[in-house]
């Protein structure tokens, strides 16, 4: 049966949401503190159980202590907040300069995001890396959706006796590509959720805006037949929205207490989704508003709902045994 100290430390570990190395150090320090105090209280004549209980009481409730430690450790410096906001700022600049049609530039930006993500992954994923990870997933996620749409259309044509537009080999490649890309996107996201659902939401932050922009592109004839002039008129809105993402991200990183972080993310994303719908389509009643709002809500709600099912933070089994 786990000791009272072990249960206490497990509770702290679950609430700390720190990187494994820092979390282990904090837990070890707290465990040593309680052990020292317990020994002293035992020397004063208290029974062991009572001594542990009193030592834990003096250290305070796990929720308060973990909350205070989380606020200290999770508050990023201005440099880290800027680094985390950088990919959003780069996309704001891309739209402000009307350069989103430049395939080499967009490819270079997404490749840079992938490079930074890989670098961060190898260094244990520092907190600033999560927004970069989001842009790293943009190309695989949307290419996966397009592959799925192509396969579905092809299958529909085939079963209705029509000639599908692509060769059989191309469909085979797409069918193989979809599960690979699905695995990559989901496993990356799940890894972020296991660390902290807040970071998973930051990974997914650009998706409602990119989805709404792609819907706007679709309304204007699609990727290869767009009305450049009409879309460029929306570039100011796009630039402002990505700038908004950068501000929301910087606030989430700069705030210490978790309630402030959650408030910044919730209010910021909610405001940006409304601005996207109003800015792009002119009114909220438009039918395209529904998918955007749904994607926005999913980003906020899915990680927090999944965190419990996926085992929460990686720290549940991190409490040192005594």
């Amino acid at each position: 049966m786990p000791s009272e100290l072990h249960i206490y430390l497990q509770d702290i570990a679950r609430r700390l949401r720190l990187a494994a190395a820092s979390r282990a150090e904090v837990l070890r320090e707290l465990a040593d503190h309680v052990t020292d105090e317990t020994q002293e209280l035992e020397q004063q004549g208290l029974a062991r159980d009572e001594a542990v209980k009193q030592a834990l009481h003096r250290l305070g409730g796990p929720q308060e202590l973990a909350g205070a430690l989380y606020a200290v450790h999770s508050q990023a410096s201005w440099g880290e907040a800027l680094l985390a906001s950088l990919p959003h700022l780069a996309f704001a600049l891309l739209f402000a300069l009307h350069l989103w049609g430049s395939t080499p530039l967009v490819t270079a930006m997404l490749a840079t995001a992938a490079f930074f993500s890989l670098l961060a992954w190898r260094r244990g994923t520092p907190v600033w890396a999560y927004p970069w990870l989001g842009y790293c997933l943009v190309a695989p996620a949307f290419s996966g959706i397009m592959a799925l749409a192509a396969v579905t259309t092809g299958a529909w044509d085939f079963f209705n006796g029509r000639q599908p537009p692509l060769e059989v080999a191309a469909y085979v490649a797409l069918v193989l590509y979809i599960p690979i890309v699905l695995w990559f996107v989901i496993s990356t996201w799940v890894r972020a959720i296991r660390r902290d659902w807040l970071y998973a939401s930051l990974v997914a932050l650009p998706f409602p805006l990119i989805t709404s922009w792609l819907l706007l592109l679709g309304q204007n004839g699609g990727m290869f037949a767009y009305d450049g002039q009409r879309l460029q008129e929306a570039d100011g809105v796009s630039a402002a929205l990505f700038l908004g993402l950068a501000v929301v991200t910087a606030l989430v990183y700069r705030f210490g207490p978790r309630t402030q972080k959650v408030a910044a993310l919730t209010l910021g994303l909610g405001l940006l989704v409304v601005l996207a719908v109003v800015g792009y389509y002119g009114n909220l009643a438009s039918s395209v508003a529904v998918p955007i709002v749904l994607v926005g809500a999913a980003i906020l709600l899915l990680p927090v709902l999944l965190e419990g099912r996926l085992g929460g933070t990686e720290g549940r089994s991190a409490a040192p045994q005594r």
Binding site: E29, R58, L59, G60, L65, A68, A71, V72
Partner: peptide, 30 residues
């Protein structure tokens, strides 16, 4: 180290200061 700080503070202040232990580690980490 942490617990040593609590005891030392108590000793040096002749028992006047008993640092709330829940605030010690957040303060040290800050």
């Amino acid at each position: 180290y942490g617990y040593q700080i609590v005891k030392e503070m108590e000793k040096r202040s002749s028992g006047y200061f008993r640092l709330p232990e829940g605030t010690l580690y957040p303060a040290l980490h800050r």
